[in-house]
Simulated assay, not measured.
Amino acid sequence: MRVLAAMSGGVDSAVAAARAVDAGHEVVGVHLALSRAGGTLRAGSRGCCTVEDALDARRAADRLGIPFYVWDFSERFRDDVVADFISEYQAGRTPNPCMRCNEKIKFAALLERALELGFDAVCTGHYATLVDGEHGRELHRASDAAKDQSYVLGVLTAEQLAHTYFPLGSTPSKALVRAEAEERGLTVAQKPDSHDICFIPDGDTRGWLAERVGAEKGEILDRNGEVIGTHEGAHAFTVGQRRGLQLGVPASDGKPRFVLEVRPVSNTVVVGPKEALATAEISGERFTWAGRAPETDAFDCHVQIRAHADPVPAHAVIGDGAVTVTPQEPFEGVAPGQTAVLYDGTRVLGQFTIDRTVSAVPAPV
């Protein structure tokens, strides 16, 4: 099998490429340049796809004895990931750029080019498992629950899964991957994992957004619509946030308040008690299935709303062009723009972007 190994410059993708070579595949390494700022440097565990990462990927490929290339996907990344991130915040939603990158870049743009060049599959260092079932290929959780990345892969379609290769999915722990990298003489064996948003390496999301969408003062309201404070820009707030509210009016019960809603049209932020974050229902019109679609329009499942959140038992209904999910116990702090991934046991059924939420605690009249 001809395999294109996406090599980020980290230990996971390097070991994944090495295992593809060991399996007897014809492997070519490729690093994706996602920024045209040539001087971009890595800051510890922040950021990825930097100059250092490209050099680390090249050294790993040289060690494995495979061809290596750098492909410029910066324009596509800017349009499909960064621009989407900005527009979602402008609309008062909370986006997940890692989901968009997997959907639009690694398993769309990259896979499309790989297939055009005659490759059979794209190999990555994601921790997830592929199972060839009776009805086609299925995406399942990794054996290492702590490193499982099936959530951020929930956007993959049946066609994409058919040309995907995850050599690390059955590895019991990240420590074993690092030990293997040491044994193979890979210099990235102890390289820190990347965290935060890769295109905001300093971690200052609020400042980064302010430079691009502007910051305009607005009002902070309670659930009754009373003004209890002001803010410097609604884009800086996300549902569930507690810190940085700077409220001028204390709560009657003395308890802290949390962001419940961001209204970009009126540039207002609504806050309330923690219990008001409980969400009884979520739904979304932008959904895809990871392989075979559910056999019925109503089914029980587990739903995960964040990369490291616990899955919640729920009931899902497909109808009127949307997927609607009702959890057995309310979700906490769900924001429009987040991704809900549906599971049947360890298998990923599919995902949808949350467009609408229904609070389990109605606002006072």
Results as ranks from 00 to 15, higher is better:
residue 1 M to D: 06
residue 2 R to M: 02
residue 10 G to I: 04
residue 12 D to A: 12
residue 13 S to N: 04
residue 16 A to S: 11
residue 25 H to Q: 02
residue 26 E to P: 14
residue 28 V to Y: 03
residue 33 A to M: 11
residue 34 L to Q: 02
residue 36 R to H: 11
residue 36 R to F: 05
residue 37 A to R: 15
residue 42 R to V: 00
residue 42 R to F: 10
residue 44 G to P: 15
residue 48 C to F: 13
residue 49 C to L: 10
residue 56 D to C: 10
residue 63 R to K: 12
residue 67 P to D: 02
residue 77 F to N: 04
residue 79 D to H: 01
residue 79 D to Q: 06
residue 80 D to W: 11
residue 80 D to A: 03
residue 83 A to D: 14
residue 84 D to A: 07
residue 88 E to A: 08
residue 93 R to V: 06
residue 94 T to R: 01
residue 97 P to I: 03
residue 102 N to R: 09
residue 107 F to T: 08
residue 116 E to I: 01
residue 117 L to M: 08
residue 119 F to I: 03
residue 122 V to L: 11
residue 125 G to V: 02
residue 130 L to I: 09
residue 133 G to C: 13
residue 136 G to T: 09
residue 137 R to Q: 04
residue 140 H to L: 15
residue 141 R to M: 10
residue 142 A to L: 08
residue 143 S to R: 12
residue 145 A to R: 13
residue 145 A to H: 08
residue 147 K to N: 09
residue 150 S to W: 00
residue 154 G to A: 13
residue 155 V to D: 06
residue 156 L to R: 13
residue 159 E to W: 00
residue 162 A to Q: 00
residue 174 K to H: 11
residue 176 L to E: 14
residue 177 V to E: 00
residue 179 A to C: 05
residue 179 A to T: 14
residue 181 A to M: 10
residue 190 Q to L: 12
residue 194 S to L: 03
residue 194 S to Q: 01
residue 198 C to W: 12
residue 199 F to I: 04
residue 200 I to L: 04
residue 202 D to R: 01
residue 212 R to C: 07
residue 218 G to A: 00
residue 222 D to P: 14
residue 225 G to N: 01
residue 229 G to D: 09
residue 234 A to D: 14
residue 234 A to K: 05
residue 238 T to W: 08
residue 245 L to Q: 00
residue 248 G to T: 13
residue 249 V to Y: 03
residue 259 V to N: 11
residue 259 V to I: 04
residue 261 E to Q: 13
residue 262 V to G: 15
residue 262 V to Y: 13
residue 267 N to P: 12
residue 269 V to M: 09
residue 270 V to P: 13
residue 270 V to F: 08
residue 273 P to S: 07
residue 273 P to D: 11
residue 274 K to I: 02
residue 275 E to T: 11
residue 281 E to C: 02
residue 282 I to S: 05
residue 283 S to Y: 01
residue 283 S to I: 04
residue 285 E to A: 12
residue 286 R to V: 12
residue 288 T to V: 14
residue 296 T to F: 12
residue 301 C to S: 03
residue 301 C to Q: 07
residue 304 Q to M: 01
residue 306 R to M: 07
residue 308 H to T: 06
residue 311 P to W: 00
residue 316 A to G: 05
residue 316 A to T: 11
residue 322 A to L: 10
residue 329 E to D: 08
residue 333 G to C: 06
residue 335 A to D: 08
residue 337 G to V: 04
residue 340 A to R: 01
residue 348 V to S: 06
residue 350 G to I: 05
residue 353 T to C: 03
residue 355 D to L: 08
residue 356 R to P: 07
residue 359 S to K: 02
residue 359 S to W: 00
residue 361 V to I: 15
residue 362 P to H: 01
residue 363 A to L: 13
residue 363 A to C: 08
residue 363 A to G: 07
residue 364 P to W: 01
